[in-house]
Every structure is written in structure tokens, then in C-alpha cells.
Design a protein around this nucleic acid. Structure first.
Lengths: 143, 143
DNA sequence: CTTTGTCGTAACCATTTTTGTTACATTGAC
DNA sequence: GTCAATGTAACAAAAATGGTTACGACAAAG
């Protein structure tokens, strides 16, 4: 399964902005965030623009500009972040439709879809239980 | 996320073998299963060999050979199948280690790992609640 | 012992996704 | 106007998935 780091980097970016603002700064640049996350500023801007589309972040352009949060870290759950960046289902059905002449081929799609829906719901319930403030407190406590 | 169909096709194959055996046949061939799942026999053999490694299926070689289940469908959960085809972790941490000089960069890995572990546990709990017999009954009921 | 049907597996390819990178246009503060 | 920043297109590298062909290994049947 294509385990990717998009959720990790997106949570990293938002948490970083949150802490930076808490320390009195107005805006955070993609360059600063990229340095912390050890990646390229364009990768950060791409992710943050998806988060902006979901209403979690905002940006200004021009000199001295950058990124801000639209809500407190305590009002952003990992589910919010997940929803903003993960479009696709966790499990796919058959790439090509199975044999409709076969009982199994005909019926397994709906049967598995129901299970997959339950699994995704469980995953979302779990992600909804952690806010970025929780994550930040975890980080500060360990430091 | 790279949603793939491996769990779907693996569950399909096992369920198909189970029903076929229930109807009095000794073994099922990868060709028959591939026809039902609308894919290539090699794809089926590759998946089934992973399931065999996990002790869920068995194969015989030679003329008139094929695949069998090692347990009843009611004794195989979707979690068993999921574990057998060994998807990696659901979420990855940073591809390259984040900045250790940064509080967030240094602490977010462990913080998110704890959450990710909880999410995977929830996913596994959910998959464990459905057996392939449940899936088959669902299929037969809908037919 | 030969034939035949099946699995076991390697090799290759096309496609998609993710991630990194360069490049350049756009914007807005100064 | 200058400059620092975002917005975004374009490209490439790498990995995973899925499909295909090919062929060796094996065992039942004659």
C-alpha cells in the first residue's frame, strides 16, 4: 500500500505555523517550514494550498508574506487534515469489473464495500480524536 | 493514497475457493479464479502464494492440481487476509528526517507515530469483525 | 516413460502516485 | 521600481500495482 508522508508533512506544517505564531510572528514562509520538514518549499506550498482550500490555512502574497492558520491548533483535528489532503478510498475494488455470470464475481463488490465503509469510518473516528494542539503538547512535553 | 485492490482480489479468491469446495469440488485452479475476478492467473497465483505463506491456502502441483483452503471460511477474517498480503504502514513519516534543531522537527515523529499506531489498531479491529463466511452469506443473500 | 495440465517464478512493461526540482509569472510591501 | 514571497507548470526519479509472456518443475494418468 502506498504509504505516503502527506499527512505527516501537512500536520508538521500546520503545527509549525501554529507554534511560530504563538511565539509572536505574523506569518510563516514555505521556506522556513520546508527547512524544518527537510523538504522542498514547493512541496510545502502544494500541501498548504490544499489545506487552504479546506479552510485550514491562509496565505498572503508579496514581500514579507507567508502562511497563517485560520483556526487555533486546538480546533484542528487530524481528521480535518486527512480530509483536506486524502481524497481516495483506502481499499479499491477490482480494477476491472469481475465476472457478472459468477455469484461471487457479481456479489463481492457490494459485500466488501460495506466492510470498507466501516473500516474508513473507524479510521476517521480515530483521527478525529487527536487535535494538532494535542500533537504540539506531546512534542513540547517530550522536548 | 494509492488505494489498491489486493485485499479485494485476495478475499475474492479465497471466497471463490470456499464456495467451489462447498459445491463438492476438490481443487480450484488459478485460471478459474482469474476468470471470476477478471484478471490474469499469474496475479491470482502471486496473491495466493502470499496467502499460503500465511497458512490460509494450500496448493498442489501437477495435472489436475490447484488450490484449497486450509480452514473454513468462517475461520478466516478479513484481518487474516490483510495481514497475509502485508501492506506496509498506513501512514509514513517524513521521507527524509526533519530538522533535529527544530522542536517540531525533532518531536513530531514520535507524536504522530503514537496516533498512527492507534489508527492502525482501529482498522485491524474493524477488519477482524468480518469473516469470509460473512462475506459469502452477504453475497448469497443478495443473489 | 511420455504426455498433459497445473503451479512457481522470473522478466518485462505500462500506468499511476509521490516526491523533489527548476523555472518563471504574479503579487504586494517598501 | 525593487524585492521577497506565493502560484503553478513542467519535468524527472523512484516505487508500487497490475498485466503479460515465458518457461521450468512437478505429478497424475495413460
Amino acid at each position: 500500500m502506498s504509504a505516503n508522508s502527506r499527512l505527516t508533512v501537512a500536520a508538521h506544517a500546520l503545527t509549525w505555523i501554529g507554534l511560530y505564531q504563538r511565539r509572536g510572528h505574523e506569518v510563516a514562509t514555505s521556506e522556513q517550514i520546508a527547512t524544518s520538514a527537510n523538504t522542498n518549499p514547493v512541496v510545502i506550498r502544494r500541501l498548504l494550498s490544499e489545506l487552504r482550500r479546506a479552510g485550514l490555512a491562509d496565505s498572503q502574497r508579496g514581500a514579507g508574506a507567508g502562511w497563517t492558520l485560520t483556526r487555533e491548533l486546538s480546533a484542528i483535528t487530524l481528521l480535518d487534515v486527512y480530509r483536506a489532503i486524502e481524497p481516495g478510498p483506502l481499499f479499491a475494488l477490482h480494477r476491472a469489473a469481475p465476472d457478472p455470470e459468477c455469484v461471487v464475481g457479481q456479489g463481492i463488490g457490494p459485500a466488501l464495500s460495506a466492510v470498507y465503509d466501516g473500516v474508513e469510518a473507524a479510521l476517521r473516528r480515530e483521527l478525529a480524536q487527536t487535535t494538532l494542539e494535542d500533537v504540539l503538547q506531546d512534542i513540547l512535553k517530550a522536548a
